[in-house]
Design a binder for these strands. Structure first.
Lengths: 201, 201
DNA sequence: TCACGATCATGACATCTGTCATGGCCAGGT
DNA sequence: ACCTGGCCATGACAGATGTCATGATCGTGA
């Protein structure tokens, strides 16, 4: 019997996943949480074999939750599951010690298969995404460039960004300029889009 | 026996929903599609009582699919289901003849409850979202302003927008200016964000 | 019929943005 | 000790952006 922990902020999909996995005779859902910072506590209580973590979650995202979980409960293997097949996510998930990476476009069979394979000690990765990840490579952005782009996401002016980051406007413009150059974009908004789609934010 | 049609582009959640609904003794999933333009054909084939449509889908979004479905198969009631609880979506869903509106944050019980209520001829709407929808009101944007903002989403320059819409740059700037004013934003990017979050795009 | 509002366009203007040159500070590696 | 590279800052400049005034066309409804 494979004990599974589910973490997803959307109650409906969480419940649906539980129902689907519960249909398998060798799988049992032992815990469900809706936030990243509840993962470790629930895992300590229920000692699952496999944890299925969504990337987008309130409190703490699935990637850093995976890191914490690997340290707190090493016996529990992690599958990261996300709506968006962004190359950067895969890289970060693997760096965080995840054993599997599944996109929500996958078929139900692929998910239960992933659970079984990961439980057996194998690694499971979408080959298409893996190739894309290798092609995209590591984020070219420095930490500050990433920060500036992240704040620039909600469309403020340079003055707003400077205030939010406690920097001078000139510095913000420099970081933006660098980020725009590195992403191959022509506008700040385009740079945000590229970085977001690549999973660099 | 309530016959249900599922439409969602993510195979995993679609399968999970099917498993969950399948557990109910009085519900049967008779069709599953992954794109908006497959809905009507599948409904004609299987004559479902209730159709559960996601808003985000390739081909044709859930809202216009709902409209088509109401005309093609009037006996089939529609529940629109979405990740994002944007006020504008609710308004458009209702205008398209939907009988129910469910956010993916809802509990599994609420969904099956919604299916049963809608099948019984009732309307099902998240009260919180309904209030927000009424507060936000109808989109203040004209069609062209909406178009311009929609194209501006991926961060091109004014020249790019003008080319894409076959307009002069001055006109594009005017529409943008109007949209920025109406949304209470200070930048084009902010305006895009506001309009997007309100479901006006 | 006439007023109104949406659409499209032009031109002018102040401001904002993106780029570049330059320089100082600091940590890590040779 | 020295070089490299990230970080912060300033100042200057061309080009893009947002605003405004003005005017023309067109369809709708009073």
């Amino acid at each position: 019997m494979i004990k599974v922990l589910l973490a997803d902020d959307q109650a409906l999909v969480r419940g649906a996943f539980a129902a689907m996995l519960g249909l398998e005779p060798d799988i049992e859902v032992v815990a469900q949480v809706s936030a990243g910072d509840e993962v470790v506590a629930a895992a300590r209580r229920t000692t699952p074999d496999v944890a299925l973590l969504d990337v987008q979650m309130p409190g703490k995202d699935g990637l850093s939750a995976a890191l914490d979980l690997r340290q707190a409960v090493p016996s529990c293997r992690v599958i990261v599951c996300t709506t968006f097949g962004r190359p950067g996510y895969l890289a970060r998930a693997m760096a965080a010690g995840a054993a599997g990476f599944v996109v929500k476009d996958a078929s139900p069979e692929q998910l239960v298969d992933a659970v079984r394979r990961v439980h057996a000690g194998l690694r499971v990765v979408d080959p298409v995404l893996a190739a894309e990840s290798l092609a995209t490579g590591h984020s070219p952005l420095t930490d500050r460039e990433r920060d500036v782009l992240a704040v620039a996401r909600d469309g403020g002016t340079v003055a707003d960004l400077a205030k939010a980051l406690h920097l001078s406007e000139g510095t913000v413009r420099n970081h933006l300029s660098a980020a725009i150059g590195k992403t191959g974009a022509r506008t700040r908004a385009e740079a945000v889009k590229v970085a977001e789609d690549s999973g660099w934010l």
